[in-house]
């Protein structure tokens, strides 16, 4: 993996792209996109993360074992967020039956 020496130019181009994306995400925050402000901000952050992982951390040239560890970690994180939010976001969708004695957890 580390036998490959990446040209200095590559690192500088990646850095400039990252700076461009930072400027973009800051600029977009001043434009009203409604709920898509968050979507765009996270999409840009995700792209920046991919650039750092693939190029600066040089995962592009790393072994399959390392890649599977990284993918597993992010898969775990996706599960954490997806299951947590699917609970909290849907709690109020269906009212609890009247026969239930105690009040269900309500949206604060």
């Amino acid at each position: 993996m580390s036998h490959i020496v990446v040209p200095q130019k590559t690192y500088i181009y990646i850095f400039l792209t990252l700076i461009g994306l930072t400027a973009l995400t800051t600029g977009v925050a001043y434009v009203d996109l409604g709920p898509f402000n968050t979507v765009v901000a996270l999409a840009i952050a995700f792209s920046k993360m991919l650039l750092v992982i693939l190029f600066f951390m040089n995962v592009r040239n790393s072994s399959g074992l390392i890649r599977i560890i990284i993918v597993a970690a992010f898969f775990w994180f996706a599960l954490l967020i997806a299951f947590t939010m699917s609970d909290y976001r849907t709690r109020t969708w269906t009212p609890a039956p009247d026969s239930w004695s105690s009040a269900p957890p309500t949206h604060p």
Binding site: T22, T25, T26, A29, Y30, V31, D32, L33, N37, T38, A41, L42, I44, A45, K48, M49, V52
Partner: peptide, 14 residues
């Protein structure tokens, strides 16, 4: 990279 948009740019600043 994630903290910056999540803490500084919530809901836009227009």
């Amino acid at each position: 990279i994630f903290l910056f948009p999540l803490l500084y740019l919530i809901g836009g600043r227009y």
